[in-house]
Amino acid sequence: MTGMKQYAQASLMVTDPSSRSMWKQAAAIDLLYVGYGLFIVSLVVLSYILGSLNFLPHNPQEMDLSLLMAPPGVAGHLLGTDFMGRDILSRLIVGIQAYFVPGLLAIAIAITLGTVFGVLAGYRGGGVETAVLYLGNLVDSFPRLVLILLVIAAFKPDIYYIMIIVGLTNVPNVLSQVKGKINFLKQKNFIEAAVALGLKNRVIIFKHILWYNCRSLFIIQATLGMAEVILIETSLSYLGFGVQEPIPSWGNMVQSGANYLLQGKFWLSTTPALAILFTILGFHLLGDGLNNILEGRRST
């Protein structure tokens, strides 16, 4: 029958909930998300390692002027060559270098500063909280792209400068989430009870708040942060302010390839674009799935 919802046989067996692991309780869809996400993440990490070991099918900078814009599969170029006859696959793999370390830096800045200020605001309260929140709002109210362009104009279009700004502008986000967690624990009288027990402040902050209650938040922030980094670099590259040629990045590959789209040479920009799409999707699904599993959104 259509429209019918099937409910499984109700179990009457006494089952001890603790014997079931967290993973079993998660819905299959979350596992699927996380599985796909982990696959993408491992591809990214693998690409990074291959790139830094220079273990590539071709030299990404070597121009083969006889093979300009070769379609995929021609002469050992698995994904074809670009407008200067460089191997697209190799450039894709090396392209991840542009994001990996700078991205981690952005994430580290966001999480570290966000945590410090979040704990200050949530744990101390009072005037400190007001000051931190005003500061956070101030940072939040700046259009991020404008800020980045300002920094590029003042210094130079360096991916590290960009990522520091990205990290700094993400601080309010992490801050408010950490503060939210602390407020939740406060509301449940958790912190008061811990103080009453005689626990030291640093134990409460590091063990109970950060380790037990914020670690899932950090993982999720990290995965989503990585996706964001890639997106921002892409938009900047499109404006010509991202990673500069001849160093490959997915953003500038899309940008330079787009010029040849009308000539029917679609693989030049489509390949890196698809790489961006699937990678960001992977990070987002990983973050989403982890969120559901770690925070138990679906299991209740």
């Binding site: 009288n189 958790f190 008061e192 009453a196 109970h208 037990y212």
Partner: peptide
Amino acid sequence: FHPLRKDMQMVFQDLDAGLNPKMR
């Protein structure tokens, strides 16, 4: 005051008080 905390304790109204939700 810290050492005195082992002599005086509180049972909180909130049933969840003091029970870290992520700890067994």
